[in-house]
Design a protein around this nucleic acid. Structure first.
Length: 104
DNA sequence: CTTATGACTTTCA
DNA sequence: CTGAAAGCCATAA
């Protein structure tokens, strides 16, 4: 048994608008607390496919920052999507998890 | 079978 | 606050 992409997508779909979740949090909710990287891996795979229902932009790292990938530019895109939903970024380009982290 | 890699996290200095 | 190091684990070669 392992963490399937569909499990990740299902969880990410549950994140309400204007809220964010961390990779580790998603992993924990699926029942695999140590699979934070696999969550990111699943989302990376999602990028290549077309799953419009999955709000991947609401998933950030434990520091409240947007995790960079080798494709610069989409980090800005992710930030814009979040700001559009009401998520506020501070001067360092980080989100206050205290206020915006999703609590099921 | 072994290595390398990566949208991560936590701890320690 | 920053940065390095170790831990973790699915995937690909």
């Amino acid at each position: 048994m392992s963490l399937s992409n569909e499990q990740v997508y299902g969880l990410v779909r549950r994140i309400p608008e204007g809220r964010v979740a961390t990779y580790g949090q998603i992993a924990g909710l699926t029942g695999f607390p140590r699979h934070a990287r696999q969550v990111g891996y699943a989302l990376a795979a999602l990028r290549e496919q077309d799953n419009p229902d999955v709000p991947w932009h609401r998933v950030i790292n434990a520091r409240g920052e947007i995790s960079s990938r080798f494709d610069a530019g989409s980090e800005d895109y992710q930030r814009i999507l979040l700001e559009d939903e009401g998520v506020v970024f501070d001067e360092g380009g980080r989100v206050s998890l205290k206020r915006f982290q999703w609590r099921p």
